[in-house]
Amino acid sequence: MDITQEGSGSGWCAGCENENGSNYWDYSDYWAGMSSAFSHSELVAVTTLCVPLLVLGLMGNILTILVVWLRPQMRSTTYLYLSSMAMSDIMMLVLMPLDLYKLWWYRPWFLGDAVCKLSQFVSECCTFSSILHMTALGAERYVGVCFPLRARLLVTRGRVRVLIGALWGVAALSAGPVLVLVGAEPVEGNLTECRVTRWAESSGLMVAMLWLSNLYFIIPLTTLTMLYTLIARRLRQRRHVHRDHTHRQTLRMMVVIVCVFVVCWLPFHVARTLFCLSLNSSVQVYFLSQYLNLISFVLFYCSAAINPLLYNIMSSRYRDNVRALLRPRTRPLPAPSPSSTHF
């Protein structure tokens, strides 16, 4: 997760140029001699918020993975998706110290070109992967509720594991251009920054990745809205069916997860687009995008840390199995059938 700072290349648009080759955001005189674009108090506030998110997020997501893989009754297809999403969140949270370092001291960059490229690649890959997982889980929920007989044949743990691997592969391919998009580039004097490469700016790759990132947000959100609307309508038509109680719990849970995702990610996409496309913006608009990105920086890691808390609040099954994992019982509960999708 990179934050958009002038000269840092974060957010993919540092050094955006117009058709005449002039830089619309050339504030190098303003930033000269500054290690960060933000005040010390602002950086302290962001760090104070992010460090607890790092600790709680790592603990919660690791616990989610342990619950799914050590408690046989939690190995439903739904929780296979959620455990894979937890792995994605862990990888993003592990990158938080590096992002805080860039926030405090983005120039010069001492960690080399490989760290610059790989950190941004992993961040983008995990982001794309989480979105794809939520969309696939929404599609599975739709099939399970609206076509239950077909779901028994199609939705099995083995097939879901293969699909999860494919989702990670698609996410990695989608994030692949980031390895060319960013790099450790020389700037003023002998200083280097982890930023968008000049080739990416001139070739149009930066704009292409901007739209890809936005499409990864807009299309899955539209798809999930349609799927969950259809699921809700079907459940209302069958409101007296006892089995649908589990489906309703799962639907509420997934809708909350998607809503939290939108709240946490919408400011980031708005700020990135604003910074990259408002070529004739004033200095005031530029600084607005900076502080909007500062807010989205915190929300980004909040999104990675909050899901286990939501599971604990909204799923009694999750709570019970967490307690059982922390305080093992002598007789385990029976494992679900291979086609089980219960939450």
Rank of each mutant, 00 (worst) to 15 (best):
T4E: 05
S8T: 02
G9N: 01
G9C: 04
W12H: 09
G15F: 05
E17A: 10
E19S: 11
G21H: 02
G21E: 00
N23R: 14
D29W: 00
Y30W: 10
G33D: 07
S35Q: 06
S35L: 07
F38R: 03
S39H: 10
V44A: 09
L49F: 15
P52G: 04
L58S: 03
L58N: 06
L63A: 11
I65F: 12
V67C: 12
L70P: 08
Q73I: 05
Q73G: 12
T77N: 11
T78C: 14
Y79H: 14
L80H: 13
Y81V: 11
M85D: 09
M87P: 04
S88D: 14
D89M: 13
D89T: 10
L93N: 04
L93Q: 03
V94C: 06
M96E: 08
W104H: 11
G112Y: 00
L118E: 04
L118M: 14
F121H: 13
F128K: 08
S129G: 02
G138Q: 04
G138E: 09
A139C: 10
Y142L: 14
V143M: 15
C146E: 01
F147T: 11
R150I: 14
A151H: 03
R152Q: 14
L153D: 11
L153T: 10
V155W: 00
V155D: 05
T156R: 15
R157C: 07
V162H: 13
I164W: 11
G169R: 05
V170A: 15
S174Q: 04
P177T: 01
L181D: 06
V182A: 01
G183A: 04
P186L: 06
G189S: 05
T192C: 06
R198L: 12
W199G: 05
A200D: 06
A200E: 07
G204T: 10
L205Q: 10
V207P: 01
L210Q: 10
M226E: 08
R236K: 14
R236Y: 04
V241W: 12
H242R: 09
R248Y: 03
R252H: 06
V255Y: 00
V258C: 13
V258N: 13
F261M: 04
P267G: 00
P267L: 00
A271V: 12
A271T: 05
T273V: 01
C276Q: 02
S282F: 01
F287T: 08
L288I: 15
S289M: 12
S296A: 15
V298N: 03
L299E: 00
C302I: 02
A305I: 13
A305W: 08
S315I: 02
S315W: 08
R317D: 12
R323S: 09
P328L: 11
S340H: 09
F343P: 00
